[in-house]
């Protein structure tokens, strides 16, 4: 009885009634073929070339491939990052305000927030550059907090880590200004991952 570290025993594993299927929490989506995401990416790129950045952003945010596989999701992330880096600093807030006031606007900005965090996460972790956005693998950028201090570090990091992260951070600051801290909380709770 007294032997072994009994605090580490997973008592729930011994309970036959404790089965907790993951699909209870994670909503199911129909799979999205890679070709569709690629077509969407091309569509957005054409909009960008015509100078319709807002249109491109809206299209990308309205068609989030929740059911896509990892490759498809990466591709859509690249599309969104490309659009984000093509929009000028001064235009961010007006565009976000327009999206927010449109029907279903909070949902769209929540999706954008998910991509910002995903962008920051992979910027931090990975060494392979994302196609379409200038990513320098510094591995030393200072984004680690998720919640509290977001308002403060919405400025470009002082270290010279290229454009990718500073774009994401300035977008993050602007989205929090418009959609509030609720958008950050929803990135954490939402089981529909991007």
């Amino acid at each position: 009885m007294a032997t072994g570290n009994w605090r580490l025993i997973d008592v729930d594993a011994l309970d036959p009634e404790n089965a907790f299927p993951a699909e209870l929490l994670t909503p199911q989506f129909a799979p999205v073929p890679l070709a569709d995401i690629q077509a969407l990416a091309n569509h957005c790129r054409q909009s960008l070339q015509r100078g319709e950045q807002e249109e491109a952003l809206l299209t990308a945010l309205k068609n989030v491939p929740y059911g896509g596989d990892d490759q498809g999701k990466e591709l859509h992330l690249a599309t969104i990052l490309e659009i984000l880096s093509s929009i000028k600093q001064a235009e961010m807030t007006p565009i976000l305000a327009r999206i927010y006031s449109s029907p279903n606007g909070t949902e769209l900005l929540d999706a954008l927030m998910k991509y910002l965090y995903k962008g920051m996460a992979r910027h931090n972790a990975s060494n392979n550059g994302t196609p379409g956005v200038s990513v320098h693998a510094t591995g030393a950028s200072s984004v680690s907090g998720f919640g509290g201090a977001t308002r403060e570090f919405g400025v470009a990091p002082s270290r010279g880590d290229g454009g990718g992260m500073s774009v994401l951070l300035s977008w993050h600051e602007k989205v929090v200004d418009v959609a509030g801290t609720g958008a950050i909380v929803r990135v954490m709770t939402d089981r529909r991952t991007v």
């Binding site: 929490l25 909503p27 949902e107 929540d110 509030g180 801290t181 609720g182 909380v185 929803r186 709770t189 939402d190 089981r191 529909r192």
Partner: peptide
Amino acid sequence: NSSGGWVHSVAFSPSGNALAYAAHDSS
């Protein structure tokens, strides 16, 4: 609801004919 989150609080309306709940997705 779609964005999920723990349900922190539930309440029936005074008539009992509606239900409101607050979840951790700030909704």
